[in-house]
Simulated assay, not measured.
Amino acid sequence: MNRRSLLCRTGALGVGASLGDDAPPRRKVVVAGGHPGDPEYGCGGTIARCADLGHDVVLLYLNDGVPAGKPKDGVRVAEAGQACEILKARPLFVGQVDGDAVVDRAHYEAFARLLTAEKPDAVFTHWPIDNHADHRAMSLLVYDAWLQMKRSFALFYYEVSSGEDTVQFAPVQYVDVSAVEPRKRRACFAHVSQSPGRFYTLQDQVARMRGIEKGCLQAEGFIRHVQGPGFDLP
C-alpha cells in the first residue's frame, strides 16, 4: 500500500469514527403499565421514538389483562405482542392478576429483582394519583424498586386517560410525537378486544392538549423524579 492509499484509508476511518461518536448511546428503557395497552396509550409515541434511536425498549405489564376466574385465553398477551412489534419493543409480564394487584414486602422484592435484571437506564410508569388500583400498584412497585436500586435509573411518570384514570397530572417535560402518531395509533388499535376506538379518542385529545402546551401538533407529557439521574428524552 502506497502512502496516498494509506492516507485515504486513514481519512475514511477517521470520518467513520467521527460519525460513530456522534451517534446517541444505546440505552435500556422500560415502560411499566398496569395492563396491556397502558404503556402504548400513555407514551406509545415516546416508545416509538426511543426505539427508532436504537434504544432497547421493554414494555413491562403488571398483569395479562385477565381477571381472576376468567380463562387464560391468551388474547391480550397476543395483542400486547403485536403492539410491541409495531413499536419495536419487547413485552414482559410481571404475573399479577388483573384487578387484584398485590403490593407487599414479598412483591416489592420480587419486582425489584425483575427490574434489576433488566438493568434500565430509564423507567416510565403511571403517575401514582390514579383512579385504577392496578395503575397505582405498578407505580408503587416501580418507585420501591427505584429506591432499592439506589435511584440508579431515571424515573419518569406518564398519564393515561387523563381525568378518567390519571388525575392532577402537570407535566414538566414533553416529547413531540406528531410524526409517529400513526404508529402509536396502530399499536393501540392492536388491542382489538379493548374497544380502542373509545379509549384512543380520549388519549388523542390528551396528546393534542399536550401538543398545544409544547407548541406542536401532538405531544406526550412527563414528570421526572428530580432525585434520579438525567436522561435525554427524544
Rank of each mutant, 00 (worst) to 15 (best):
residue 185 R to F: 08
residue 223 I to A: 04
residue 43 C to N: 00
residue 211 G to R: 07
residue 89 A to T: 03
residue 206 V to K: 14
residue 46 T to E: 02
residue 202 L to W: 15
residue 31 V to H: 09
residue 171 P to D: 02
residue 90 R to Y: 04
residue 141 L to N: 02
residue 94 V to I: 09
residue 192 V to Q: 12
residue 176 D to N: 10
residue 52 D to K: 11
residue 14 G to T: 15
residue 218 Q to K: 14
residue 206 V to C: 15
residue 160 V to G: 03
residue 32 A to P: 04
residue 189 F to V: 00
residue 120 P to S: 12
residue 169 F to L: 08
residue 36 P to W: 00
residue 12 A to Q: 10
residue 123 V to D: 01
residue 114 L to Y: 00
residue 112 A to G: 05
residue 198 R to T: 12
residue 208 R to A: 14
residue 60 L to N: 01
residue 95 G to I: 03
residue 134 D to M: 02
residue 161 S to L: 15
residue 107 H to D: 14
residue 168 Q to P: 00
residue 176 D to A: 09
residue 170 A to S: 08
residue 85 E to G: 11
residue 206 V to Y: 15
residue 31 V to T: 07
residue 196 P to S: 15
residue 26 R to I: 10
residue 190 A to I: 06
residue 166 T to W: 07
residue 65 G to I: 01
residue 54 G to D: 14
residue 110 A to N: 05
residue 96 Q to K: 03
residue 118 E to Q: 15
residue 1 M to I: 07
residue 62 L to D: 10
residue 216 C to N: 08
residue 105 R to I: 02
residue 16 G to Y: 14
residue 160 V to C: 05
residue 114 L to S: 00
residue 189 F to P: 08
residue 190 A to P: 10
residue 39 P to I: 09
residue 1 M to F: 06
residue 94 V to N: 03
residue 143 Y to K: 12
residue 25 P to H: 02
residue 8 C to F: 02
residue 18 S to Y: 14
residue 81 G to P: 05
residue 167 V to A: 08
residue 153 F to S: 05
residue 32 A to Q: 06
residue 69 G to C: 01
residue 76 R to H: 07
residue 177 V to I: 15
residue 214 K to E: 10
residue 200 Y to G: 02
residue 225 H to N: 13
residue 204 D to C: 10
residue 166 T to H: 05
residue 233 L to A: 08
residue 105 R to V: 04
residue 2 N to C: 13
residue 47 I to Q: 10
residue 157 Y to T: 02
residue 205 Q to F: 04
residue 115 L to V: 06
residue 72 K to M: 13
residue 39 P to D: 14
residue 193 S to T: 09
residue 35 H to T: 08
residue 20 G to S: 13
residue 120 P to W: 07
residue 16 G to H: 11
residue 232 D to V: 13
residue 142 V to F: 00
residue 187 A to Q: 08
residue 5 S to W: 01
residue 119 K to N: 13
residue 120 P to V: 11
residue 1 M to V: 05
residue 14 G to H: 03
residue 48 A to Y: 07
residue 202 L to D: 00
residue 167 V to F: 06
